[in-house]
Design a protein around this nucleic acid. Structure first.
Length: 335
DNA sequence: GCCACCGGTGGC
DNA sequence: GCCACCGGTGGC
């Protein structure tokens, strides 16, 4: 079966104001971001945001089909939110996520800009679709690792919050005061002593976020290749059972469309003429922006279209040139 | 000199 | 369009 993803949302604050809003998520693997300004799209109700992760074609709006999809769809959403975000104050969040501090961008042009940071982690109940805050990053990672096989329910939160149930109000709603991002499901917890860091980039950049792993010795690694080399150079980790399969550089997806700057059109290597043709087309389409059907987060007021993206597992899409190993291969080979 | 962060690019 | 990787660089 396929797996879904979990949705994580990140809420962060930014210095900018222009983001507007999106609604909640509804899709599978995206993350949503809600910048502080988004107000309109807030979607309140629990049922509204079921995210469907996996399978189905679409969810329509709110409630609904998730249930059928059984565990797969709806439930797996995790939201991360920034307590420091405007308006977020109400929620008490995560005690100490490492990433919770907004960072200042170091680039010259953006010196005063505050980058979004993950401030809280939330997961959506597979039954009522209410968002429940997860007390720590570690717990969140634990839930995320098995979310597909073990859907999260409000009752699951009783581990840290006595008596909570679907009858209780949601811990968080997408009210536009935060950035939301939907995480990928089933990402392995980092090996003991290792930390997985998610750094959210500023709006308008070329990428939404970066993942780094910090080894027990403090070494920061930023790609599977670096992990592989590092493990080869430090056989002691393999001896402890640390393998490539324990790492994933998959990043959440911002709910806010256009948070990430689109890459300019790249002419096909092949022909120039096509190039000009495309340029024309590009102009036209640009104006027609609003054609899009209802992407979540965008304008669509009511229902968001389902974006169903295929679930991506860690290595599923990656190309595997000879030098690269898949996680599993690596796991097996690394010895 | 280090490093956090970003841009760019190749490949799919 | 997305993803993975990695080089560059400003700030510390």
């Amino acid at each position: 079966m396929e797996r879904d993803h979990l949705d994580l949302a990140t809420l962060g604050k930014t210095d900018h104001n222009d983001i507007h809003g999106s609604s909640v998520a509804s899709h599978r693997d995206n993350m949503k971001y809600e910048p502080k300004d988004l107000r309109d799209s807030a979607q309140p109700a629990p049922n509204q945001n079921p995210i469907d992760l996996t399978s189905s074609p679409e969810r329509e709006d709110d409630s609904t089909d998730d249930e059928d999809n059984q565990g797969e769809d709806a439930q797996k959403q995790l939201v991360i939110y920034d307590p420091t975000a405007v308006g977020a104050g109400e929620i008490e969040l995560v005690p100490d996520p490492l990433d919770s501090q907004p960072r200042r961008n170091s680039f010259p042009n953006y010196t005063s800009r505050i980058l979004p940071a993950v401030g809280a982690f939330t997961v959506q109940c597979a039954n009522c679709f209410k968002w429940r805050l997860i007390p720590t990053k570690e717990k969140y990672e634990e839930i995320r690792e098995h979310i597909l096989e073990q859907p999260f329910y409000c009752e699951s939160a009783r581990e840290w919050r006595a008596g909570v149930s679907c009858d209780d109000p949601p811990d968080l709603t997408q009210d536009g005061s935060r950035l939301w991002a939907i995480d990928k499901p089933n990402i392995a917890q980092p090996p003991p002593g290792w930390e997985r860091l998610l750094r959210i980039r500023g709006e308008g950049g070329t990428r939404f976020a970066d993942v780094y792993y910090v080894s027990p010795s403090g070494k920061r690694l930023r790609s599977m290749i670096e992990i592989q080399k590092y493990l080869q150079e430090h056989p002691e980790y393999a001896a402890e059972g640390v393998s490539m399969s324990r790492f994933s550089f998959q990043i959440p997806r911002p709910l806010q469309e256009n948070y990430v700057r689109k890459r300019p059109y790249r002419p096909a290597l092949a022909h120039d003429e096509d190039d000009s043709v495309k340029r024309i087309a590009w102009i036209g389409s640009d104006g027609g922006t609003d054609l899009r059907l209802g992407m979540p987060g965008l304008s669509a007021p009511t229902d968001r279209a389902p974006l169903f993206e295929p679930v991506s597992q860690s290595f599923k899409k990656r190309r595997t040139p000879s030098k690269r190993m898949s996680n599993t291969d690596a796991a097996c080979k690394s010895s």
